[in-house]
């Protein structure tokens, strides 16, 4: 019951944020540009085209009415028509979202699989060589431009060494697995298509490592500092005094408590993954939301850019809600609050 109340409160909060988000995207599309019709159609549009556009998008009505029409459209899944692809923006987003999801999940997996052990290692060997290595790597991870890192790894692993593909989701001669989730790795597993599985996994390696480096650094730093705090607690000394092996002390008593702040960071990381995906996908020709956004933005395809912006703003609070739910179950103290 208490959980339901918690959930209800959070969902109301998200709804309030979504109203704010819609006001901002509305402002960006309808208020900031001197003439939204010109912004949407480009400078070369004829007067007749602009007049038709104004009529079609109700730009001749008062602003409050335009806002109501705009929100009504969003609620009915109408995000407008892309000027570049000439398709509905909602359809374009539905097509490109799974690719971004797959890349983001892979990057998140890299961050967790590398970041958490690195943080623990660094805390255990505090002040010694492994700690120094992890801290320098984490500092670099927080300071590297992701688009530059992408170029460097493509230069090295694709052009120089030829070990890994430098872009795309599959080799050209491999056909995509039948679509069930849109995530090629999962779809090819479900279809038992080993060629597609191999190809999709090796295509994921470089973009996932590139996109995941920043969040790996954040998670390693977070795990390190919370692990250090936990290692100094009385119950750790008690566990050691009981004669438990060091491994058991660290994993059972230390890690479980140290991971709670790390879980919170995962939700926040999702937002940075989406921002990073814009640039990573552009570099790796990854046909996801980010590349779609960039290509649309470059060709001044306004409805498309706003569609991505809106979707991104929905994903972030929802990811945070998922994390909060996990957090609620992980940390019984929150349930009492």
């Amino acid at each position: 019951m208490r959980f339901l109340a918690f959930l209800a409160r959070r969902i109301v909060g998200i709804a309030a944020v979504m109203i704010g988000v819609s006001i901002i995207t509305f402002a960006i599309s309808h208020v900031i540009p001197a003439d939204p019709a010109v912004a949407a159609l480009g400078d070369h549009a004829t007067d007749a085209q602009i007049a038709a556009f104004r009529g079609e998008y109700h730009l001749d009505r008062p602003l409050p009415e335009q806002y109501v029409i705009y929100v009504n459209g969003i609620l009915h899944g109408d995000l407008g028509k892309s000027i570049r692809t000439r398709r509905s923006v909602a359809d374009d987003l539905a097509d490109s979202f799974p690719a971004t999801l797959e890349l983001s999940f892979a990057a998140l997996a890299v961050s967790l699989l590398v970041g958490i052990p690195a943080g623990i290692w660094s805390a255990i060997y505090r002040g010694r060589f492994p700690d120094v290595v992890v801290r320098i790597a984490a500092l670099a991870g927080g300071s590297l431009p992701v688009f530059w890192l992408g170029l460097v790894v493509i230069g090295l692993f694709y052009y120089q060494l030829g070990w890994l593909p430098g872009g795309g989701r599959l080799d050209t001669f491999v056909s995509p697995p039948p679509t069930r989730t849109g995530l090629y790795v999962i779809d090819s597993l479900l279809a038992l298509d080993l060629d597609a599985l191999r190809s999709s996994v090796i295509h994921l390696v470089l973009p996932a490592l590139t996109l995941g480096y920043f969040s790996t650094a954040v998670i390693a730093r977070m795990t390190r500092s919370s692990m250090l705090e936990v290692l100094g607690q009385d119950y750790m000394r008690t566990a050691r005094a009981k004669g438990l092996t060091e491994r058991l002390v660290v994993v059972r008593h230390g890690l479980r408590n140290a991971l709670i702040p790390t879980v919170t960071i995962i939700g926040l990381t999702f937002g940075s993954l989406l921002s990073g995906a814009v640039l990573t996908e552009t570099i790796f020709s990854w046909p996801g939301l980010g590349r779609y956004a960039t290509a649309s933005a470059i060709s001044l395809d306004f409805p498309a850019v706003l569609g991505v912006t809106l979707l991104a703003a929905v994903v972030y609070p929802v990811a945070n809600l998922a994390v909060d739910i996990a957090y609620y179950w992980l940390d019984p103290r929150i349930q009492r609050d």
């Binding site: 704010g20 814009v278 956004a293 609070p317």
Partner: peptide, 9 residues
Amino acid sequence: AFPALILAM
């Protein structure tokens, strides 16, 4: 709530 780079874009 907005990923910074996307909103900035």
